[in-house]
Design a protein around this nucleic acid. Structure first.
Lengths: 205, 205
DNA sequence: GAAGGTGATGGCAGCAACTGACATCAAGGG
DNA sequence: CCCTTGATGTCAGTTGCTGCCATCACCTTC
């Protein structure tokens, strides 16, 4: 297959992660990553579309997990429950690599460019979930909304999980956050006329 | 103030938008933008952190609008309602520039880098909304979740508004989408006492 | 009204991310 | 043993972006 050692992609990912932690993300050059992996810069860009992408290798796996979980859910499962089950299905992936996930998240929150990439990956997961819901017959406004709401739950729950000093399970965070979403949306809902809110004055920031 | 013509920032934004539509985003160079605005590349980067940012000049205004609307909402207003009012407060901003908003959105959906930027701007709005909610005494899991859910509503509603051939108001889209969110989250819960859900459907489309 | 300060702009050099075109090498098949 | 194939290397070039310093317009101040 390859020319030299196998698993070039994995070597690049590992070299990148190590270098990012040693010198920081932006003081690490792609050439250095490639060199540590025993490859060249050009080869790096054959495996990853750009420098950021080397930190998001698992996105495809998550997408498949979510899609299949929603698709395979029992027919009577409600859309939101199906999405919740899909998010829960991803929990083990993170549980096994909690340290890696933490280190990675530390990098992401510290670099706006990486946060952007993370957000588009999450949006992609939402899109995949919406597709899967439509495959179950959920009609359009509801499908996208349920998927987006699910991702919102995931974002909040994941953040709390990473910050959680005691290793409470991600699944538990997901469940309680979902309950919180239900509570927050269930309250004084007027399905009909949301009266125009009178704003006081110009933003005095 | 300036050296020559005033409003360098505005000239750069306009030149950029025009060039993006003429040649496309990635076949337009920053040097060309600056030249059309009668400036140099170096000056462009004094006004905008990077090439993408020239399309997101209004973000600060939106942020202030959302923050002040939530802060100034009557005390008895529920968190979700306050967020909904804040989103609604942004509608006029888009209404006045519907054509610009459409053209801009066309560029954004066509370029992943711009979608990333848009997502982080939305996340920033969510963060601002969460801050404002906390300022009203909303405790933490709820504040972030309500803000994120609100942004999810905004994303879906805005998308539908842009695609809407007949110019239905963004406010209307926001309202119906919020109702849809309530409907979708209200159904068969887990920990919560699931109340029998009888809900009129939001406008089906 | 001449001197000096200030803020915006230009000019230039340079780095690093990324790309296209082409050469080269390892491995397997016929 | 040659030839195909896929992964890798090499090289040149573009572009986004930054640091540093000079320059210019405008304003203040004496």
């Amino acid at each position: 297959m390859g020319r030299w050692e196998p698993n070039a992609r994995g070597r690049l990912e590992e070299a990148a992660m190590n270098l990012f932690q040693e010198r920081g993300y932006d003081r690490t050059t792609v050439e250095e990553i490639a060199a540590r992996a025993g490859l060249t810069e050009r080869t790096f860009f054959r495996y990853f579309a750009d420098k950021k992408e080397v930190l998001f290798g698992g996105a495809g796996e998550l997408r498949r997990l979510i899609t299949s979980t929603i698709t395979d859910a029992p027919e009577e499962t409600s859309p939101l429950e199906a999405v919740a089950a899909a998010l829960d299905a991803t929990a083990p992936v993170f549980k096994e690599r909690r340290d890696y996930a933490r280190a990675r998240q530390g990098l992401i929150v510290a670099h706006a460019e990486l946060r952007e990439r993370e957000l588009i990956k999450l949006a992609d997961l939402a899109s995949a979930a919406a597709d899967a819901l439509r495959g179950r017959g959920v009609t359009e406004p509801a499908a996208s909304l349920t998927a987006e709401a699910g991702i919102a739950v995931f974002k909040v729950a994941f953040e709390r999980w990473v910050e959680d000093p005691k290793s409470q399970d991600l699944s538990q965070h997901l469940r309680s956050t979902l309950d919180e979403l239900r509570a927050v949306t269930a309250s004084t809902g007027t399905a009909n006329p949301p009266q125009p809110v009178k704003r006081a004055k110009a933003p005095r920031r």
